[in-house]
Each structure stands twice: as structure tokens, then as C-alpha cells.
Amino acid sequence: MSIVVFSSSSKDTCYIAFSLADNQEVNSWLGSVFGDQAVPQFEVNTRTVDVLYQLARSSEARCNDTALLIEDLKQKASEYQAEGAHLQDVLLQGVGLSCASLSKPAADYLSALVDNAIVLGVRDTSLCSFMPAVNNLTNELLEAEKSNRRLDRDLRALRKRLGATLVLRSNLQEAINKTVKSQSVESAKAEERLLSMGFVTRKTKEFSNTRERAEAQLVSRNMDKSITHQAIVQLSQEVTALKQEIIPLKKKLEPYMDLSPSPSLAQVKIEEAKRELAAIDSQFEMKVDFK
């Protein structure tokens, strides 16, 4: 396809024309689109020329379709006008009615009937045309009411779910707030425990070091283990046990206190008791001294 570019000497406007039969088609399309105005400047290349040609063909096709539709509408309008004129002649000649002879209420009713026919989209105002249209509208109304009822049920269900969701959200938010508050309290307690644990750990380490140094000093000084706190506690327990052993011995001697003493036998018993008491007292005093 050969391309010829024409440049206007007045406004330097580029016109694109195609060779052979396309030249007249594109030029006529550009002239019809812009009319008396000059064609705007554009870059001339193969793509723009092809697009312009396709636009011209599409515009021409749409114009033809529009023209056919206009002709069809004009034809229908003329048919309707002819039919209306025929009906007017029938009414005038057969019944003797005309638009001028109708009363105002009748004219209003007739206008309302026509308006209803236009709204319903029927071809004429006969009952056979009105009834299907009214039935269709009734069916559409019933379907709309049915859809509205279904939507109302869905809306009530959604509102119920929304209420339950809001309650659940409120409960969850309250639980979250309580959990956050509890976590903050527990975090403070845990931090306090960690501080206390650190303090106790340091003190334990200090006491362990002190004990180890004291034990090392005692070992270096050759301290007798019998005077340690544990040994003294053990001696105290043994002394308490001996005191408990003395109590039944004293009770055993009580019956003999009331007997008339036999000088020789009493002397022997007294000496034995004295020796036993002396031994116990010496043992007790020894243990007390150790304590």
C-alpha cells in the first residue's frame, strides 16, 4: 500500500491519503469528521495510517448501522401514524367520535391509557396487550417481594450474627484486657522474684565464701571438733537423756526413805547410792563442762 503525504501551505497540516480506491474513502471520512476545521497534525507512519484506515472503516460501518436504524424507526413511526389515522377515521365514521368531541375526563383517561401503554411497553392499548404486561409486572413484583423477604431473613440472621459477634468481641476484648493486666502483674512479680533471687544468690555465695574461710581458719588453728556447735548440741541431748534416766532412779529410792534404817544395811545402801549418784553427777558435770 503506497502512502502519499500532502502538506498544506497555510497551516502546515498533514493530510494522509491512500493510493487508488482508499484515497477517496479516507479523505471523505476526514472531511466529514472535522468539517470546516483543519485536520490536527500527527506523526505519519505505517501504524498510524493503518489505525486511521481502520477507524474510517469502523466509523463508516457504524454510520451505516445508525442510518439503517433511523430509517427503520422512521418507517415504524409512519406505520404508527398511518394506523392512528386509520383508527381515528374508524372512530369518526363508525362511532362519530373525534379528539375534539371528547370531554376532558375522557381525554384524560385516554391520555392516561396511552401513558400506561408507553410505560408497559405494549404495542397497543388492547386488553390482550395489557394483561400479559400487567401479569409480567405482577410476577416481577412477586419475585421482588420474595427477594425482599429472603433479604429480610438474611438481614435478620446477619444482625443476629453481628450481635453475637459483637458480644464475643466484647468478651474477647475484656479477656484480653484482663490477660494483659495479669501479665503485667506477673511480669512485675517475676522481676521482683528475679531481683530477690539475685540478692539471695549473692548472699548465699557470700555466706559460702565466709563459711569456707572460717572452716579454713579453724582447720589452720587445729580446733577440737568436740566444741563445735553440733557437738555441743549432741552433748546437750545426751545430758537431757541422762536427766531423764535419773528420774526413775530417784523414784526407786523413794520407798526406802520411809523405812527404819538398819545401820549396817542402810549404810551399805547409802554408800552404794552415793557412789552411783556421785558417778552420775560427775558424768553430768563433765558433760556440762564440755558444754
Results as ranks from 00 to 15, higher is better:
residue 199 F to M: 10
residue 110 L to V: 03
residue 79 E to I: 07
residue 173 Q to K: 10
residue 207 F to L: 15
residue 93 Q to K: 10
residue 208 S to N: 11
residue 130 F to Q: 03
residue 93 Q to A: 14
residue 190 A to F: 12
residue 169 R to F: 14
residue 102 L to M: 08
residue 137 L to C: 09
residue 211 R to E: 05
residue 149 R to T: 11
residue 196 S to Q: 09
residue 195 L to A: 03
residue 184 S to W: 13
residue 108 D to Q: 09
residue 96 G to F: 11
residue 78 S to D: 04
residue 100 A to L: 05
residue 131 M to P: 02
residue 115 D to M: 01
residue 155 L to S: 03
residue 99 C to H: 03
residue 86 H to D: 06
residue 201 T to K: 14
residue 125 T to E: 00
residue 189 K to Q: 15
residue 126 S to K: 04
residue 153 R to Q: 13
residue 147 S to H: 14
residue 170 S to G: 12
residue 215 E to A: 08
residue 144 A to L: 11
residue 104 K to T: 08
residue 116 N to K: 06
residue 208 S to W: 12
residue 124 D to W: 07
residue 88 Q to A: 06
residue 109 Y to C: 01
residue 116 N to V: 00
residue 173 Q to V: 08
residue 210 T to C: 10
residue 209 N to S: 15
residue 167 V to T: 09
residue 204 T to E: 14
residue 169 R to L: 07
residue 112 A to K: 00
residue 197 M to C: 10
residue 81 Q to M: 00
residue 132 P to N: 03
residue 83 E to M: 09
residue 175 A to N: 07
residue 127 L to G: 04
residue 188 A to I: 07
residue 158 L to V: 09
residue 216 A to R: 02
residue 112 A to T: 03
residue 135 N to Q: 05
residue 218 L to T: 09
residue 159 R to P: 02
residue 208 S to D: 13
residue 182 S to K: 06
residue 218 L to Y: 15
residue 188 A to E: 13
residue 82 A to Y: 09
residue 192 E to T: 06
residue 153 R to Y: 13
residue 177 N to E: 13
residue 152 D to V: 06
residue 138 T to I: 04
residue 132 P to I: 00
residue 142 L to Q: 03
residue 196 S to C: 02
residue 200 V to F: 06
residue 159 R to A: 01
residue 212 E to C: 08
residue 115 D to L: 10
residue 185 V to D: 04
residue 147 S to T: 10
residue 188 A to T: 15
residue 179 T to D: 14
residue 114 V to N: 03
residue 178 K to L: 02
residue 139 N to L: 05
residue 120 L to A: 02
residue 139 N to H: 12
residue 105 P to G: 06
residue 153 R to C: 06
residue 173 Q to I: 05
residue 205 K to F: 10
residue 166 L to P: 00
residue 159 R to H: 10
residue 113 L to F: 01
residue 89 D to M: 08
residue 148 N to G: 10
residue 212 E to A: 11
residue 198 G to K: 11
residue 103 S to G: 01
residue 102 L to C: 04
residue 151 L to G: 01
residue 96 G to D: 11
residue 134 V to G: 00
residue 143 E to Q: 14
residue 84 G to F: 12
residue 106 A to P: 00
residue 214 A to C: 02
residue 208 S to P: 02
residue 186 E to V: 10
residue 117 A to S: 08
residue 96 G to P: 03
residue 187 S to A: 14
residue 213 R to D: 15
residue 146 K to L: 15
residue 205 K to H: 13
residue 81 Q to Y: 00
residue 98 S to Y: 03
residue 108 D to C: 11
residue 128 C to M: 02
residue 106 A to C: 02
residue 134 V to A: 01
residue 100 A to H: 09
residue 167 V to E: 14
residue 186 E to M: 10
residue 170 S to N: 12
residue 133 A to Y: 05
residue 139 N to P: 00
residue 113 L to G: 07
residue 115 D to N: 06
residue 149 R to S: 07
residue 188 A to M: 14
residue 156 R to C: 12
residue 130 F to M: 08
residue 217 Q to M: 12
residue 187 S to C: 12
residue 178 K to D: 05
residue 123 R to M: 12
residue 193 R to C: 07
residue 181 K to L: 12
residue 195 L to H: 06
residue 92 L to V: 05
residue 114 V to F: 03
residue 95 V to T: 13
residue 89 D to W: 02
residue 149 R to N: 11
residue 163 G to T: 07
residue 121 G to V: 01
residue 150 R to Q: 09
residue 201 T to F: 12
residue 105 P to V: 09
residue 218 L to E: 12
